[in-house]
Design a protein around this nucleic acid. Structure first.
Lengths: 100, 100
DNA sequence: TCGATAGTTCGATTATTATCGAATAATCGC
DNA sequence: GCGATTATTCGATAATAATCGAACTATCGA
């Protein structure tokens, strides 16, 4: 499987990031990833079909929020925390603040 | 005209705020308001029809980003900066950082 | 009270996005 | 190579949102 395309931090588009974060499923993914270093797609599907998850991961990835790498048959996803914090300080913190 | 409904800061929903900010026109409005204290709807329509602007202001208002008050025949809009900064530090700053 | 002005609301249309099953691809262990 | 596993892609459908003209409302000034 060819590697995924990830935007560089200079290419991050705020609109795109906001759109990515405006969906409850994706917000949930981001929050989970924030506390977990890495996670496979499968770990994060809470009853949702895989194809839906794949869609959401793509949106997150293309916005620059999530990095995905292949490891065998699984994909490891991680939050691009450092790059996001450097570019938009406080943004991820705002997302996590809401968590129960 | 009856006064507009504005959510209290405790009611701010992050998803809703992100959705509001994921549109270029609305991002433009927010950026403009950030430097201006108050503005009428008319001042901010850059070629866009009034009905579209009214729509965007409503989205912003209902998300808690903008406060609107009536003054004669005009409506004065302002960014709810203090409340937003208190609840989501860095969020508005991230929006403004991008500005040309 | 008659405009004129500033916005909102309505309604129809178009565009974007989400959802999810089915088909496909990639990789591992045997 | 053969399954089994994991995830992406495709394709159709449903849901949500943006756009904008036209009609409507409210307020001010003469």
């Amino acid at each position: 499987m060819r590697p995924f395309k990830h935007p560089d931090p200079e290419q991050f588009a705020l609109e795109r990031i906001f759109h990515a974060l405006s969906d409850p499923a994706r917000l949930e993914i981001v929050r989970h990833l924030a506390g977990v270093e890495q996670a496979t797609c499968g770990e994060l599907e809470f009853g949702r079909p895989k194809s839906s998850m794949s869609h959401h991961f793509r949106i997150l990835r293309e916005a620059g929020l999530v990095h995905t790498s292949s490891a065998g048959t699984t994909h490891l996803n991680s939050l691009r925390r450092k790059e996001l914090d450097a570019r938009f300080p406080g943004l991820i913190a705002a997302v996590l603040k809401q968590q129960p």
